[in-house]
Structure formats: C-alpha cells, structure tokens
C-alpha cells in the first residue's frame, strides 16, 4: 500500500467515524490547536454537508419531519450509505427504500421520500423534443393498430398506499398539512412539462392503458387493455382521448409503426 493511500484511508476512517483510527498521530500537534480538534473540523463538516445535501434533495420530507427528526433520519442514512457519486445531487437515492424498511409502521415517510425523489428525477430528466399532436394525423388507418409510442424520459407511473402526494402538495405550497394516513391503492403519474415537474392521479383505466404503451405495447394492445373498463364501441374514442391528453401534456416524443 502506498503511504498516501494509507494516510488517506486513516483520514477517511476518522471522518466517517466508523472505526478507531490512529490518524491523529499523522497530524502536527499545536498547543492551542490540538490535532483532535483539527480532525473534528473535517468530521463535523462532513456530517453537516451531507445533512444539507439530503435536505436539499428532500426539502418537503425535512419540512414534514422537522429539523430534529430529519437530522436523525439523515444521520442514520449517512452512517450506513456513504456517497459514491461525484455530485451530491445523487446522494440519498436509496433513502426511500431505507425508510420504508426501517419505518414500516409509518409508510407515508418512505412514500413521501419516494415521491420527492421521483419528482427530482423528472426535474432534470433528459431533454427530448415532444411530438406535436398534429403529427398523428400522418398515420393511415392501417398503421394505427401497430403504432407504438416513445414517451418522454421524465414519465413515471407509480402505485402508492398513503396520502404522500397530498402531504407533498401541502408542504410545498405552504398549506396546512393533513394527517398522514393509509389510502386505498392509488396510481400516480409524474412527468415534466416544459421545465416544470408535474403530477396527477390516474384512474385505473388510464393507468392500465398507459402502462401498456410505456411497455412498448401497440395502440391495439392499449385498446385491448381499455376493454376491461369500457364497452368495445367506446374504446376507440377513449383511447384517442387519452392519447390527445398525453400529447398535450408533452409526454410523448415520437410515434412509429413497423
């Protein structure tokens, strides 16, 4: 092991506070500025910086939990999940899963974190031009059944069992926050329109249709899925209406038939 690597490992162990280290013997002592105090500056700064990073990535979770509880959540995460990414933007990517596992009696905490993280992914998802609604008229009636759609990278469907989106909305708008609660299973859509992340709930028929086409299903298979909820004669109109809504919301980037 190179002396530099050894030194850096000792320093890092001290900053992480995970294990005893003899790093202090590597630091020049000074009567007024002891080595232990010098090292503690780095250890404290590390924790403060990563707490701030989590607070920046989960501002509504912090607002909901309050400073003290949030810091406890952050410290537990920092101690077990050191960052491996160049940017703190990605620190906390597994926080929702960790909270769901560690706080099963309060599932809204994990879901609020999941919601906030997915909103942030929509915020800086890859830029793609979206399809002008008029372009679909260019396809012939024969092409329509086999039509497939490419969705914007920000589009994401998820199922939640708590009122986490309502908590998020109230927190981010500064309104009175309802009590956290279980709900029946609900489908949600998150995407970005222009530069702004958006979200809304999905009724089961739209969620079913959207999941089919997000999974590279054809327009015909989307119509088949809609038959579960609508009489067959109403399905083409329903499908066209959904497509129009998704196009207007800038969710679709392209359409193609084989």
């Amino acid at each position: 092991m190179s002396p530099l690597l050894e030194l850096q490992r000792m320093f890092q162990a001290d900053v992480l506070g995970a294990q005893p280290s003899s790093f202090a013997t590597e630091v020049v002592e000074h009567p007024a500025k002891p080595a232990a105090v010098r090292i503690a500056i780095y250890r404290d700064a590390y924790r403060i910086r990563l707490r701030e990073a989590l607070a920046s990535n989960y501002p509504q979770l912090k607002r909901w939990a309050g400073d003290e509880t949030f810091d406890a959540i952050a410290d537990a995460y920092i101690d077990t999940h050191p960052s491996h990414q160049p940017s703190v933007r990605w620190f906390g990517d597994t926080l929702a899963a960790v909270l769901s596992h560690s706080l099963p009696a309060q599932p809204w905490i994990g879901e609020l974190a999941q919601w906030e993280w997915l909103m942030s992914l929509a915020f800086d998802a890859v830029d793609r031009a979206t399809l002008h609604p008029g372009r679909l008229a260019e396809f012939s009636a024969e092409q329509w059944p086999e039509l497939q759609f490419e969705f914007h990278p920000s589009v994401h469907c998820l199922i939640l069992r708590t009122n986490a989106p309502a908590l998020y909305k109230a927190l981010s708008e500064g309104h009175t926050v309802a009590a956290p609660s279980h709900t029946h299973e609900m489908q949600w859509l998150i995407w970005r329109q222009d530069l702004t992340p958006r979200y809304r709930s999905l009724d089961p028929s739209e969620a079913g249709a959207l999941r089919v086409v997000l999974d590279n299903g054809t327009f015909e298979s989307m119509c088949t899925a809609l038959c579960e909820w609508y009489p067959e004669e109403d399905v083409p109109m329903q499908a066209a209406s959904l497509l129009r809504e998704w196009l207007d919301a800038q969710m679709i980037c392209s359409a193609a038939s084989p």
Partner: peptide
C-alpha cells in the same frame, strides 16, 4: 486536494501531504 478513497466521496476538499512523492503523484 483529494475527496475520498476506496470509491467513497466525502464531498470535501481535503488537504494533501506536502511531499515530493505527492508532487510526483
């Protein structure tokens, strides 16, 4: 500076030992 080792990023700007070996590195 250095920012971490063994794949960890401490997200800090940590000082280096001022030695000839570090200069070469």
């Amino acid at each position: 500076c250095w920012t971490g080792v063994d794949g960890v990023n401490l997200h800090d700007l940590l000082p280096l030992p001022y030695t000839e070996a570090t200069v070469r590195h």
